[in-house]
Simulated assay, not measured.
Amino acid sequence: MAIDWKWYQVKKDEDEHIQPIFEQNRSGCNEWLNQVRKNKTNSLRIKLLDSGEKVVTGSLIYKQNFEEEGDYKIFHYYVTEEQLITVDLNFSNLKHIRPEPLFKQIKKAENAVDGFFMLLGELMHEMLVEIDQFEEALKTLIWSIRKRNGTSILEEIYMRRHELLVWKSLLIPINELKIGIEEVKLNEVSREEIFTLLVKRIERMTALLNEYEHELDSIINLEEVISSHRGNEIMKTLTVITILFTPIMAFGALWGMNFKQMPELEWRYGYLLSAIFIVISTLLLYGYLKFKGWTGDLLKGKKKDSYFK
């Protein structure tokens, strides 16, 4: 059944507008105002007054810059069945919400709780639209790994991982708010379809973030495997090259000595024989490494689209 309820939209620094509202209403408004003036983070307070009135108050960060920690938008709310107060809620920061139609829809709600749920539902809709851009960037990243797998890709992977953490930090307080509303059964005074729509959007956002998290974890695991393989290949290459050049270095060091009595100095074909000896010993050493399978894929050409090139 519809009741006569009111929605007050004010700014935190407009004391001349805020105070009259608090003088007309009770239920701990002054205490909430003190929290509004100093609170800069998400918060939630749930009260069940002696009169049986249910009150939900708190603050909610609804917009966050992914590159600047201090660049965010927060609004404060005070909700009972008969009144809704929002402080510093700026719809100009929301690209995909049309304020005028939303205001008309909220004001037609049967009570303040329905109006608040509609508001939260639109904020969730904004997040769901914005997350599509993240999905597009993630899809591009997935294919970039195959085309140009380098350090820049690894940097981009962890940028997307950070963005995902920011998205989750925005969703967690909304989910907590939903649970808190259910805790005091404030949702029971709302029309079922309105609260259900809000819940489904929260569940949808949660499912998307969980799936994206699994995708990013898989990408990170793939990158770790590729990096480990590359490191092993580099070490194997250096080891094989060192071993193959050992005969040259050993015989070079031997024949580079300057002892007075060195019989090889008088050999007519000494230079030719030493060169042949070095080549044969190097080939025999390579053959032994090849026979043991220790050269791996070092001398094989890489496939064009290989992840490990």
Rank of each mutant, 00 (worst) to 15 (best):
I3G: 02
W5V: 05
K6I: 11
V10I: 13
K11T: 10
I21W: 04
F22C: 10
E23W: 04
R26K: 14
S27D: 13
Q35T: 14
Q35G: 13
R37I: 12
N42S: 03
N42Q: 02
L44K: 07
I46H: 05
K47S: 14
K47E: 14
L49N: 12
E53N: 08
E53M: 05
V56W: 00
V56H: 00
N65K: 01
E69T: 09
Y77A: 09
E82P: 02
D88K: 06
H96I: 13
P101Q: 05
P101L: 07
K107P: 03
K107S: 12
A112T: 09
M118L: 14
L119D: 07
L119M: 13
Q133L: 14
Q133W: 11
L138E: 05
G150F: 00
T151N: 10
T151P: 00
E155P: 00
E163Q: 11
L164S: 01
K168T: 04
L171G: 07
P173L: 00
V184W: 04
L186D: 00
E188Q: 14
E193L: 13
I202H: 13
R204H: 11
T206S: 15
L209V: 08
E211I: 09
Y212T: 00
H214S: 14
E215R: 00
D217N: 14
E223D: 06
M235W: 07
L244W: 05
P247W: 02
I248C: 14
A250K: 11
L254A: 10
W255Q: 05
M257R: 02
E264F: 04
W267V: 03
W267Y: 14
Y271P: 00
Y271M: 01
I278L: 14
I280E: 08
Y288Q: 14
F291A: 06
F291Y: 11
G293F: 06
L299E: 02
K304P: 01
F308G: 07
